[in-house]
Every structure is written in C-alpha cells, then in structure tokens.
C-alpha cells in the first residue's frame, strides 16, 4: 500500500488554485486551515498565515465556501483544521453538518482533548506525551485515521525529523485496532524528512513549509509537493 501525503493549506482566495496544484503534485488529502486569532498549537508560519487570512476576511463562512470551491475542483478527501473557539461560536454539530455539505470528510480540532465533546466525530491527535491509555482511547474514537504529533511542541519546520516519532508510532501500532492508518505531522518539511517519516508511519502531513512554498504560487507548490511525493514513494524501497 502506498504511503499517503497530506498537505496543509490555509483558507484564502488563492487556496482553490493551490489545492489543485497540490493534488496535481501528488497530495492524497488536503487539510484546510480555518484561521483563528489565537492559535495555541501553531508556530510562527501558520500563525502569520492565519493573520493574513483573517485580514482577507476568511471567517468561518468564507472558509466553508473555500472548502466547497476546492471540493468542486479536486477528488481527494478534504479535512478542515479548526480551533474549538470557532466551533463554540458556530455550533459544533452545525459546523460538522455544514462542513460535510461543503465536501469535507472528517474534521480536525487541534485544541480539544480527545475525550471532550465526545459526540463530535473527528480525527484524533496523539503526542509523544500521551499515555498509553489516551492513545488507545484516541485510536478507538478517531474518524478514519490517527494523527501522530511527532514533536512535543507547536507546528513548524524543524531541522531534523523528531526522534520521538518512532516510539510514538510503535506504541500506537500496538494499541490501535489493526489496520488503522497512522499519519505523522508537525515539523516535517523536507523530502528527506518525509521519506524518513514514511518509513515509520502510513502517511506524512506537511504544513508550515507548504504554506511558505505556496507564497511563491501554484507552480512552486506543485513542484514542492512532487518532490515530497517522490521521496515518500521511494520509502521502504
């Protein structure tokens, strides 16, 4: 089974074009950021992207429209990445319903502990600090795949792939139902990181670096995603 490549993009006017380019470059799934003014899980690159998006007027409704437009252009699964403050204001269930209508599959909420709002179906995140008990609970309740946060920290490129990933992935494999896909994200920025992460996990999520590259336009992003794709496809070979 080939390993999956997930690209994070921040909602914005150019994002449908960028999503198309990412998919052409070989992305299997697009994670779509809904900007929030005070994003605790994010490092400087995504924070700045959120500030720009908010200044552009990308509020929840506009982001849902952006999602629907991307849905019209690409076939890959789309996953909103949305802070609980936005759900609190919009309504948790209403958001899930409207995101589905706009074309999303599952949703990701980075600042909601996995046992909070358990009525909300979503992709769960686990971190190197997570206990076995919480990894098991996350694996049992997650919607489709499990997000392995490779670092103890916020989003953003790191020089090297986190050494914590291997241990976390091994624990998750042991605790999760057989066959549950494990995708690794946070801190992965180069094709070398992506290849190394893909040796360990079933998929690789690239965010901050993709956002930086996307500032150069669709062609740059397509080329960058292709390079990640090639690295991942070469993993295990």
């Amino acid at each position: 089974m080939s390993k999956k490549l997930i690209i994070f993009l921040m909602s914005g006017r150019q994002t449908p074009d960028l999503a198309e380019a990412a998919v052409e470059g070989g992305a299997d799934l697009i994670e779509l950021g809904f900007p929030f003014s005070d994003p605790l899980a994010d490092g400087p690159v995504i924070r700045r992207a959120a500030e720009v998006a908010l200044a552009e007027g990308m509020r929840t409704k506009a982001c849902l429209e952006c999602l629907a437009e991307i849905r019209g252009r690409v076939q890959t699964p789309l996953v909103p990445f949305v802070y609980s403050a936005l759900l609190e204001a919009y309504g948790y269930q209403r958001f899930v319903a409207d995101a589905h209508t706009a074309g999303a599959g599952a949703i990701l909420v980075p600042d909601l502990p996995l046992d909070a709002h358990s009525e909300l179906e979503r992709i769960q995140l686990v971190a190197p600090t997570s206990t076995d008990e919480r990894i098991r609970l996350a694996a049992e309740t997650t919607d489709g795949w499990l997000y392995l946060v490779t670092v103890t920290g916020t989003t953003g490129a790191r020089r090297e792939l986190s050494s914590a990933l291997a241990g976390l992935a091994a624990r998750a494999r042991q605790l999760a139902p057989p066959g549950l896909p494990l995708y690794a994200g946070f801190g992965i920025s180069t094709p070398e990181h992506a290849r190394a992460a893909a040796e360990i996990a079933d998929g690789v999520i690239v965010g901050s670096r993709a956002i930086e590259v996307a500032e150069g336009g669709s062609d740059d992003l397509r080329r960058y995603v292709s390079s990640l794709r090639a690295a991942i496809d070469a993993s295990g070979s």
Binding site: A116, T129, G153
Partner: peptide, 24 residues
C-alpha cells in the same frame, strides 16, 4: 462525565488545549 465537564463553573472553564498538554 466527559472531560470538558471537569473544572467547570456553571459551564465555564474546562480544558481547551492541545492533547500534548493533557498529561501535564
């Protein structure tokens, strides 16, 4: 009791943080 009901003052409070912090 769901996790968000712990540490609540009439529905206010709770823990809206990344999972990384929960063990701490």
């Amino acid at each position: 009791p769901p996790a968000e009901s712990r540490g609540l003052y009439s529905g206010y409070g709770g823990r809206y943080v990344p999972e990384t912090l929960i063990p701490a």
